[in-house]
């Protein structure tokens, strides 16, 4: 169950230009967390900013009661959060959302999961980076897309990664979806987990509808995706964050993560 925790900033680290990692110490009992879940952080000292900011859990450590978030500075709220100092306190609601659930995905597949693709774009790679640690029994290939060399620092969180950048400053010049076919021809995955902006996920869904993403059993490879929409409550109460899934409006904060084939983008 989500609670509003008082946390203390342990470290504020600049990863690249306008990219920040915050490590927070949670006071009180540390909750059960899963990768893919997110938190809502109150923007400190700014009562005029009336909504909290949502960030995926990039990493956590139960023993030290710490969580990390990684974010890009895109506006006022993230600019304030990028300036917090070690020792400063932040109110953080966690854990929110459902997190990746391989056991659930497995029940909907015939063949056992062995090899998983992690497909992410930009800051959207964050909720994917902790998966190999949480599920070490699987093999992974990470296909990651970035704007340029600067934000590609996030690739360091992944072991077996292939990169595409818009400007070609590192890896393949182009889109991350360009990496799919060659990777597929090399080794077919059993499952794809994805996260990124809506245009990014739309691109991935287009590839999916082309039909060649078939498993070794010749069945369509399932793609589960984590979404970002504007949120107010983050807990499922306000109905502000919905997307259309299977013809119904589903809450991204509460009902996520979704089977990409079922999402209308």
């Amino acid at each position: 169950m989500a609670k509003d925790y008082l946390t203390k900033v342990i470290q504020n680290k600049s990863l690249a230009k306008e990219m920040v990692a915050l490590r927070l110490q949670v006071e009180g009992e540390f909750p059960d967390l899963a990768m893919g879940q997110f938190v809502l952080i109150q923007v400190p000292g700014r009562p005029d900013i009336v909504l909290r900011r949502a960030f995926c859990i990039a990493d956590y450590d139960k023993a030290s009661k710490q969580i990390s978030v990684v974010f890009r500075v895109i506006g006022e709220g993230t600019a304030v959060l990028a300036r917090v100092q070690a020792g400063q306190e932040l109110q953080v609601i966690l854990p929110l959302g459902s997190g990746w659930d391989m056991t659930k995905y497995q029940t909907q597949m015939e063949a056992p999961i062995r090899h998983i693709w992690l497909v992410g774009g930009g800051i959207g790679v964050v909720p994917l980076c902790g998966i190999p640690k949480e599920y070490p029994q699987f093999d992974y290939t990470s296909l990651l897309g970035f704007r340029g060399k600067d934000d590609s620092v996030l690739a360091a969180y992944f072991d077996n990664s292939q990169i595409a950048t818009d400007d070609g400053s590192i890896g393949h010049q182009g889109m991350v979806v360009d990496l799919l076919r060659p990777a597929y021809d090399k080794q077919k995955p059993d499952l794809i987990l994805a996260c990124g902006s809506v245009p990014f996920l739309r691109g991935l869904k287009n590839i999916q509808t082309q039909g060649w993403l078939q498993s070794t059993q010749n069945t369509p490879i399932p793609i589960y995706a984590s979404f970002e929409t504007k949120m107010a409550c983050g807990v499922g109460a306000c109905m502000g964050c919905v997307i259309k899934v299977d013809g119904q409006k589903k809450r991204v904060c509460k009902d996520a993560i979704f089977d990409l084939t079922k999402v209308e983008l």
Partner: peptide, 18 residues
């Protein structure tokens, strides 16, 4: 409920169209 974006934060407030 409504289609499209449903919430938008504004100065000291928010707009909703749930």
């Amino acid at each position: 409920g409504n289609e499209g974006v449903r919430i938008c934060e504004t100065a000291s407030g928010m707009l909703n169209s749930i």
